[in-house]
């Protein structure tokens, strides 16, 4: 089944992505955009052109909701909400196809798991879980 990414997106998120003027201040202010396969600005551009590929990029998993881009955005678009919604769509698709989740808990280093605050771990799980 082909999914219509824009339709799915607006079902669960009301960020006004169409008001994006593609200025790129989000990509410039993102502290980790150099690790992303496509920058936040490009991701929004792909999304409004209804490209399903946005779900395959690591960008949606790397956004840690620090809101630096939202504070800079001229159009007050909250990219963290866009990423949250796309993650959710991706996980829903996988759940529908009965595939396991992306997150592999076993691969996390044990010493980090023991020392880290559990709030951090819950945050991770919440970003990777399908509700």
């Amino acid at each position: 089944m082909e999914i219509n990414i824009l339709e799915e997106f607006f079902n669960i998120c009301d960020e006004k992505v169409f008001s994006c003027i593609n200025c790129g201040v989000c990509s410039a202010s993102c502290p980790i955009s150099n690790f992303m396969e496509i920058t936040p600005q490009k991701l929004i551009f792909f999304l409004i052109n209804n490209k399903k590929e946005v779900l395959e990029k690591n960008t949606i998993w790397l956004c840690a909701s620090c809101l630096n881009c939202q504070a800079r955005c001229r159009k007050s678009i909250d990219f963290s909400k866009v990423a949250d919604a796309l993650r959710h769509i991706y996980l829903k698709e996988r759940a529908r196809k009965k595939l396991s989740l992306e997150l592999e808990i076993d691969k996390i280093k044990r010493e980090i798991l023991i020392k880290s605050p559990q709030q951090l771990f819950i945050a991770l799980q919440r970003k990777f879980a399908y509700y």
Binding site: F35, L103, I108, K127
Partner: peptide, 17 residues
């Protein structure tokens, strides 16, 4: 600026950066 938050579990190199 963001410290990388929970990416420490999945992408350690980003938090280091």
């Amino acid at each position: 600026r963001c410290c990388g938050s929970y990416l420490t579990y999945t992408n350690e190199e980003i938090v280091k950066d």
